[in-house]
Design a protein around this nucleic acid. Sequence first.
RNA 1: GCCGGAGUGGCGGAAUUGGCAGACGCACCGGACUUAAAAUCCGGCGAACCGCGAGGCUCGUACCGGUUCGACCCCGGUCUCCGGCACCA
Length: 829
Amino acid sequence: MDSSKYDFKAVEEKWQARWREAGLFRTPEDFDREKYYLLEMFPYPSGKLHMGHVRNYSIGDVTARFLKMKGYNVLHPMGWDAFGLPAENAAIQHGIHPNVWTRDNISAMRGQCERLGLAYDWDREVATCDPEYYRWTQWIFIQFFKRGLAYKKKNPVNWCPSCNTVLANEQVVEGGCERCGTAVGKRDLDQWYLKITDYAQRLLDDLDKLGGWPSKVKLMQRNWIGRSEGAEADFSIKGFDKKLRIFTTRPDTLFGVTYMVLAPEHPYVKELTDGTEYEATVADFLRKLQYVSDIDRSSAEIEKEGLFIGRYAVNPMNGREVPIYIANYVLMDYGTGAIMAVPAHDARDFDFAVKYGLGIIPVVDPGDPDIDLDHLREAFVAEGTMINSGEFDGMGSRECKEAVTRRLEDEGTGERAVNFRLRDWLISRQRYWGTPIPMIHCDACGWVPEKEENLPVLLPTDVEFTGKGESPLTTSKSFQETVCPICGEPAKREIDTMDTFLDSSWYFLRFTDAHNSGDIFSAERAKYWMAVDQYIGGVEHAILHLLYARFFTKFLYDIGRSPTGEPFENLLTQGMVLKDGAKMSKSLGNVVSPDEIIGRYGADTARLFILFASPPEKELEWSDRGVEGSYRFLNRVWRIVTELSNETVGLSLDAGATTGAPEYRELDRARNRAIKKVARDIGERFNFNTAISAIMEFVNALYRYREVAREPDVTLVRRAITDLILLLSPFAPHICEEMWELTGHDSALYGAPWPEYDESALMSSEVEIALQVNGRVKGRLSVVQGLNAAGLEAAVRDSGLLDQLTAGREIVKIIPVPGRLVNIVVKER
RNA sequence: GCCGGAGUGGCGGAAUUGGCAGACGCACCGGACUUAAAAUCCGGCGAACCGCGAGGCUCGUACCGGUUCGACCCCGGUCUCCGGCACCA
């Protein structure tokens, strides 16, 4: 063993064992102290951690250890998002029960966490597949059901033919399955939904309260919720007694309507065409559409297709009769499933009108001579002045929206309306390894929830995993056959399980009271710990997980359970870990395994590098050289500490006077500067990279001191290395514990108080300022500390440097900036 | 297409938010130690030009322009890259 290097393997194993034995990371239940709830997004137990996890948890761990040192009562738990498809696939492919596979993975990953030195309170560990956990997921579902927020509906749903299950809209990415990429089709299925749309407005409004969230994430959620303001209007249909209701965000353009479009699935379509000459062609069109929707939808944009259905609608504004079409570009599940088409002022309608030779009537004048209203080349969608709009002519289009809406309301032909893009959340999954939906179907009583005292509804074990056909739960008779909780007659259990996003929508609440067997969590504990003060995870969860978690929290708040309406006070979205400019992946062969790095350099090095290489929210480019640099740095610390401590062990910090030598003051200034900067960078800015560079500068100052100081001041040195160990300990806890012990401390380093700094030691009596001429630095001047502007200007004038700097040019003015510089403005020649 | 974000040395990145651009690290170069190498310690390191030299001088934060005594930072425009949404009426 090279004596200039520390034995990281021995050191890390030693301290991990000690921490474990001492139960050091347990969270005391001390409600009088100021709390800090720090949480990293819990992982899916795939089997091993990847570098993204290491980054995520290193950020969290440094913060947790720092806050603990700052005196907070810190809750820092970890758990497992343990339901999901890979476990089931393992069962199908290797014949391992999903539960066994999952448990094995969890213990492997827990071991990795420990080897990274992560200070988690494992006493609060939860796995969403624990019956004691999913019991409460089921309980929450029943509360939703009781309040009419969970319902079953037959609907065409997104179906992944490869995963054999339905997908939420959110899980369809560019027309393909989020998980496997297979083209998603449509199927008519009876499915459970959660009525998240009831919360759309609040989910939107409360984003404004989340000052500690990245604006990017808030914007993504805003767009996802997609609030649109406008109006609904009734068009009558000639020879038909029902009105056709449409939604529009542009009521101002009502006079420009030249045709109407219904979604092909609109219920009127059948009524309007049955028995007419159009019946056959319409049926044909629908069949074709079904086929189209089943093939690759991800390829860019689909050509707009439509069909006249032989009927005419009457414009409520001006009585104009316009033809009614059906077309693939109108969706049944947004608005009313029908639109008024204004080709002059809507890009989609314009395309369609051009293709089918339909009229284009401009009603908004852009006031731009370059735009020829009679021969529009594209739709004009911006604001302008109304034309061709009867009494509204000359009005600005913005006021016109209001005016038209008012007229619709006065005449009873419409009203103002708001629509959201957000749809209700489809939560049924035709899978085994998930939380069973605790519902029972009784022929007499309909859908009835399981009695709460009977929860959890356990996953049965007598199932077969074939990977074909329906959910494995269909193979368990004992599971399906039950009795109705209301009438006691034989009844059947729901065999679908829940989307795993439900499991992860409330786990942060369970951590506050993880093993409460009588209740979801105690009100007292939740009140103390909630909300999560800092949540840390990848941006990929910016929409789904974070939106669902907010929704659940609001619901639990409404029923008097959650003490807060928002779960996460502050959010940090960390960037990806890249290698050679690309995301690490097996197919690219650029994966760096955490185990390998820990084995070669130790956990302290891995943590240090990953935090030093880049600020947390940015992408991080993996660099083997950089890792070596971090390793070298730790060894450099080790050497100076062991060397200097030989001379200072056992010395009291209060001992002796210190010399006033310049090198003394310089080292002491470096120490104070580092304490201040590291605290600020960790605690306020989350800039771990600059915190580490501040520690490096401090170490460099120590080396410089050793180089220059003829007679090292032992008190000074001891204070410096003590504080150095404290500052570095959140980043590299193992080596720091070892050095702490080595330098004669007998108490644990974990949780030791963060050092104080002395502001006055940061000041030197003189400060060097820059002398600029016309903004360019031309010289320097030492002046006394704390000089105001006038004093600074006088000092420059008295210095006798002006003539030399200006070279005889006329001085226009002098701008002194205290503590920084003086700019002398001269006339250029 | 719409909405966001970002462009700083050979590389990762700093810059107290309008005040000395390039902290810290990587890579590279030089010196010390060594029989030698590695390791370590010390020093150098944006570019062009002038000077034997100490040093001087100009340019430089994607590009063009503006505001200002002073701009990586603010404003207008352009380009490139990344991310989100994508027929949402």
